[in-house]
Design a protein around this nucleic acid. Structure first.
Lengths: 155, 155
DNA sequence: AAATCTTTGACCTTTACTGACCTTATTATA
DNA sequence: TATAATAAGGTCAGTAAAGGTCAAAGATTT
């Protein structure tokens, strides 16, 4: 395993973990040089590993003194639970949002890593695809996600 | 007589026996080259010899630096192991049998109480009833139960 | 002969990585 | 003070490197 992208991801996450602030600033060219790759490789890592879906926020500035700033996922608010539960009932349950939420719940130590993985596996379309219509999949995922969340909350 | 599939099976099991970890990683193309066969022959071996029913677990990643990971057979001492897993994919998955199974697994301390509850909640028909046909429910439950069980087995 | 098991190959999907070309901001200079 | 040079970062399409699927052909067993 361990692709270049994985190495860069790990490096950035370590930086984030150690940073006294809620973000880190990096230079794209410098980082690319450090890992002996083209600069756009850094964008690939940011797109695939530090996406909004995964709870990260990335902003940047071009030109001289340019930089890339990566924010760590922000702490869960009570409001976030509310939003998730609201989306469970109306039709627009989004598994990616749910996965993002799960990740945060895990990072805040509400659930174990294994529980997070268990719950996340319910959000993958592949299990449903051959058996139910696409529009039904979201509703089912919502129902099941609700069921397991309730188990956690009751505990 | 030893078929090619048998040889590959034996080779992989020897690797597993010797591995210091709970799994081995292989490259499909490399292995196929070693045994002078097409890559899909490897999938055949994995499907027929390293199935869940036989206690094995296989996961993989595509793309550059992809791999196939084979986990050692589960140490769970449950006699109807094979039957449970056989029933996961074809239509006759029985949630009650699965619930018993879960209980055993819990008693053997493979999973926590909360994990058991999480998994058990997937076995309840109520979540599915309004959305899918009765015959489909069993199949879905089977698929999802398989998915979460795999998470446990990998851990 | 029929059934079952093995092997193959054509075609598909996913993931990683690169490079050419583009946009934006700062800095130096005419 | 315009403006040119420089110094960032962004985009996107293309390529390569894996592994997956499925049906058909071939071999073996019953």
């Amino acid at each position: 395993m361990a692709t270049l992208a994985d190495l860069i991801e790990g490096y950035l996450k370590r930086l984030l973990a150690v940073s006294p602030r809620r973000y880190i600033d990096i230079q794209r060219r410098e980082l690319a040089a450090k890992f002996n790759c083209v600069p756009s490789q850094i964008n690939y890592v940011l797109d695939t590993r530090f996406s909004l879906e995964r709870g990260y926020l990335v902003e940047s500035k071009r030109g001289g003194r340019g930089y890339i700033r990566i924010y760590r996922p922000s702490p869960l608010k009570i409001d976030d639970w509310g939003k998730i539960f609201a989306s469970l009932d109306d039709g627009d349950f989004d598994p990616r949002v749910a996965a993002d939420f799960l990740n945060r719940v895990y990072e805040e130590k509400f659930i174990s890593r294994r529980e997070a993985k268990l719950m996340e596996s319910l959000l993958r379309d592949e299990h449903y695809l051959s058996l139910v219509e696409p529009e039904i999949i979201r509703r089912l995922q919502g129902k099941l996600f609700e069921a397991v969340l309730k188990v956690i909350l009751k505990d």
